[in-house]
Computed example of a mutant assay.
Amino acid sequence: MQADHAIEVSGLGIRFRRGRRGRRSIKAMFAGTKRRDLTGEFWALKDVSFTVKPGEAIGVVGRNGQGKSTLLKLVAGVLMPDAGTVTVNGGVAPLIEITGGFVGDLTVRENVRLTAGLHGMTKAQIAERYDEMIAFAELEDFQETPYRHLSNGMKVRLAFSVVSQLDEPILLVDEVLAVGDKAFRDKCYARIDEMLAGGRTLFFVSHRESDLRRFCTRGLYIKEHRLEMDGPLGDVLDRYNADNS
């Protein structure tokens, strides 16, 4: 029986330390300015609540530094909250950071096997889908190349190719498609269309309004580390653009 919600977030909050007491630069010493106190804690997200139904496509918007990517990492289980709860009913396929899960000194072939295995694919599944993952990433001539020698675009292609082969019902995407070239983005968009048509849930953080409008029907607007608005994507984008015009 399918759960009523793919994602349930209630009163969610997380705080971080700003760091150690800042040192004065040589220029500041001569100018006679005091060093800044960068210590203490701040809430990256506070009192955020929402639910996502299975099969929904949610776009998350907000200015840089407001907590969008942090929210995605909380949903993915990469970070643990300091307040509230996150419940995810089903596995997630996370495309959050292009370097996440990949090892620089391992080859492309070794990284595909390692990363796909860490995400729960069996050896048989990896063997069955390996050629397709390599072909989709357009890395047929780089299978024995160490990962650290790949360009950022190659790393994005590899990450998306592996993650999009996972059978998990929830896809988490954070900005990384902006790094690839147009031809590869079009391939990624077509793959996401297929996944959504198959009933997957999409949780998508992006500054590209065209991408958000293509995939998402509902939006979440994060402002000053809180959920400012939750509603139809068009209305949310109108509010966000009005606030930042």
Rank of each mutant, 00 (worst) to 15 (best):
A83D: 07
G101I: 07
L227A: 15
R214K: 12
M121T: 02
P94C: 13
R157K: 15
A57E: 01
L114A: 10
H5Y: 15
A159T: 11
V75W: 11
S164M: 15
K123F: 10
F50V: 05
H225I: 03
I192P: 00
L196D: 05
T107G: 13
L106S: 09
A83M: 06
D181F: 01
H225Y: 08
S69N: 04
D193I: 03
N89A: 15
A93S: 14
K53N: 14
T39R: 13
G234F: 01
F142E: 02
G101N: 10
A137M: 12
V61H: 11
A137I: 03
E168V: 00
L12T: 02
L95T: 04
V86A: 06
P146C: 07
A178S: 15
N241F: 15
K223T: 01
R226G: 11
A76G: 13
F42T: 03
V60H: 05
L106R: 11
G117N: 11
F30K: 01
D238M: 09
I7A: 07
M195Y: 12
T145C: 14
M229H: 10
A124Y: 02
R200L: 01
S210N: 14
R208D: 15
T217N: 15
K34L: 13
S161Y: 15
L196W: 08
K155L: 06
K155V: 00
L177V: 09
S151R: 10
K27P: 01
H149T: 14
V173A: 10
L202T: 01
D238P: 01
F142T: 04
G32T: 06
G219N: 04
L177G: 00
